[in-house]
Every structure is written in C-alpha cells, then in structure tokens.
C-alpha cells in the first residue's frame, strides 16, 4: 500500500497546514515554520513523483535544491526578524504594517 495517493495526501495536508500557519500565526517564527512546512510538502511531492515515475532522480535533485533554499531562506528570514524585533520590539508580523493603506 505504498500508494501515490497517500503521499500526495500527506503532502497536501502539510501544505495546507503550512498555509494556515502562514495566514494565521502572529509570531514571525511561527510563520517561518509554516513556510518550512510548505517547503517540506513540496519536496515530498518531488520525491514522490520521482519514485513513482520510472525511478529517475530529477525529482530528488529538486528536493535537494528545496532543502538548500530553505536553509538560505531561514538564515535570511531570521536576520530580518531580528531587525524587525529591534525596530518594533515585537516579533509579531501583524504589527509590521508600515505599508498599510
């Protein structure tokens, strides 16, 4: 029962949870974790399709790049969070509303 559908479902659930976190969480770190969930979901998708379609490893390479980008993203995002925290004395993203119309 190593069904494709199961993996895709798991991936979709992770993706939706990540989205939910991005939309609802006030803490910037939590939002970042939501993003990590989304990235993991997509990477899982890549690997899934790689496995279920003739075993070619392009999907795995893509997943590898996803991991690399996630690392870079996390590093930059945390640096930004530090700065926001210093300016606004908070890590809450809904307070970072300088662009409000």
């Amino acid at each position: 029962m190593y069904n494709l559908t199961i993996y895709l479902m798991v991936s979709a659930v992770l993706f939706l949870l990540g989205l939910f976190a991005v939309m609802t969480r006030k803490n910037a770190i939590s939002v970042l974790m939501g993003i990590e969930l989304i990235l993991n979901a997509s990477a899982l998708n890549f690997v899934t399709f790689s496995h279920f379609s003739s075993g070619n490893l392009n999907g795995q390479v893509a997943a590898l790049f996803v991991i690399i980008i996630a690392a870079a993203e996390a590093a930059v995002a945390l640096a930004i969070f530090l700065n926001i925290f210093r300016i606004k004395a908070t890590s809450q993203v809904d307070k970072a509303d300088l662009l409000q119309g």
């Binding site: 910037a28 996630a70 996390a74 590093a75 945390l78 969070f81």
Partner: peptide
Amino acid sequence: LIYVGGILTLIIFGVFLTS
C-alpha cells in the same frame, strides 16, 4: 542533517532571540 541539525537549530535560536 540539514533540517533537523541546521535549520531547526537556527529557528530555535531565532525564537530565543526574538520572543
């Protein structure tokens, strides 16, 4: 290695530093 060992550690640092 990367996620659990690297990124997650980074996040924990972030949590400690901000909130």
